[in-house]
Amino acid sequence: MKHYNYIFTGTGLAALMTVYKMTLSGKFTNKSILLVDESSKKNNDRTWCFWKKEPSIWEEVITQKWDYALFANENFRRNLNLEPYQYCKIKGIDFYQFVFEALSKAKNISFLNEKVTNINELETHVYVSTENKAFTCDQVFNSIYNKAALEQQSKFPVLQQHFIGWQIQSKEAVFQAEVPTFMDFSVAQKGNTRFMYVLPFSENEALLEYTLFSHSLLENSEYENEIVNYIQKLGISNYKIIEKEQGSIPMSCYPFWKKNTRRVLNIGTAGGWTKASTGYTFKNSDKLSSRLIHFIETETDFRKFHRKSKFWFYDLLLLDILDKENEKGSRIFSSMFKKGNPALIFKFLDEKTSLVEDIQVILKCPKTLFIKALFHSVRYF
């Protein structure tokens, strides 16, 4: 039975970021690494967006950058100047190809396209089995999400950021190529938090995603009917669909870190790396994977990795509100973006604000809703 220093069970965003940064550091060339996933990551299955101030290690795969973004609801529209930030887009397939090409050159890294069937931590090592093989290792980075474990608990709210997106090419030149639509709440809310998200690539081409923050998924036809309605509202009558994408991202402040053990660390969605209040994944995974690299250079006990911050509590308050009054999302985000400083809001979502800056952002939100959530939050401790 072959032994590795590290096994990555699942090769999602967090896993690929982490192992790529391990190769960049040059400090793990003497460590054997195995990546196991039943998916070979050869399809363009998603689009990631994030904001940044300085150049990142992902510059080569960023295909679009914007300095402005639109926020809208049924009553107002506001163009947001994002300076000093830029809003950036990465296609899933470009990211996969970029990372796998780099990893394929590392002699200490192996790949296996099989489904993981068991992870068993023993006294001195971890046993990992797939449908056809078995291995041992010193430590496991697990990104296989256990949906049932989250949904079977009732203490912490669990919502989904779920969406269907169409990349379309239209005959009519209707898109502002330099201004993506961050959130457009002018669509019918129907008792939920529903908005359109638009990434324009030119005057004639864009990705349109009908998105909800809610408990339950819809029938595919409902997402797509709303996309068609929105396309018509934009004045488009002649278009073709280039690509489709679909996703559902859990939004919860459930303490995933309590599942970490000495030798098994849950990362990505499985470890709660998704930003709970927004569903943004790329930015948080980038930050946490970098911290993880520094951690494993000096520490061996994965139970020490997690740090709870004030932002976990802020996210908890928002999710508590949306759990009980899901239709209030438009009101909350509209209050924040109508007069708030866009750069400060993005800094807040980036979890880099001071307490004074936190208060400046939070005071833009409906106070009564958050005061009620604050009193209710005692149940989570």
Score class of each variant (00 low, 15 high):
C88L: 08
K89L: 05
I90V: 09
K91N: 13
K91A: 09
G92A: 09
Q97P: 02
Q97E: 05
F98Y: 14
F98L: 02
V99M: 12
V99G: 14
F100W: 11
F100I: 01
E101Q: 15
A102C: 06
A102L: 01
L103D: 07
L103S: 02
K107A: 01
N108T: 04
I109D: 08
S110F: 12
L112P: 08
L112Y: 13
N113F: 04
E114G: 00
K115H: 03
K115V: 00
V116Q: 10
T117V: 01
N118Y: 08
I119E: 08
L122I: 02
E123M: 14
T124F: 07
H125P: 05
H125V: 07
Y127G: 00
Y127V: 14
S129Q: 04
T130R: 13
T130A: 12
T130H: 12
K133C: 06
A134C: 07
F135R: 03
F135Y: 10
T136M: 11
C137S: 11
Q139K: 10
Q139A: 05
V140H: 09
N142T: 13
I144L: 15
I144A: 14
Y145K: 13
A149Q: 12
L150H: 15
L150E: 14
E151D: 14
E151N: 11
Q152C: 14
Q152P: 15
Q153N: 14
Q153K: 14
F156C: 03
P157L: 03
P157E: 14
V158A: 05
L159M: 11
Q160F: 12
Q161F: 15
Q161D: 13
H162M: 03
G165K: 03
W166Y: 07
Q167D: 12
Q167Y: 05
Q169D: 15
S170Y: 04
A173K: 11
A173G: 00
A173H: 12
V174Q: 10
F175Q: 07
E178F: 04
P180G: 13
P180F: 08
T181K: 11
F182D: 01
D184W: 09
F185N: 08
A188E: 04
Q189I: 00
Q189K: 09
K190T: 00
G191F: 06
G191Y: 12
G191E: 04
T193N: 02
L199C: 13
P200S: 00
P200D: 06
S202W: 11
N204V: 12
N204G: 09
E205W: 06
E205L: 05
A206Q: 06
L208Q: 00
L208H: 01
L208I: 06
L208W: 07
E209H: 13
F213S: 05
S214C: 02
S216F: 03
S216C: 03
L218R: 13
E219C: 02
N220R: 11
S221A: 07
E222T: 05
Y223E: 09
N225I: 02
I227C: 01
I227V: 02
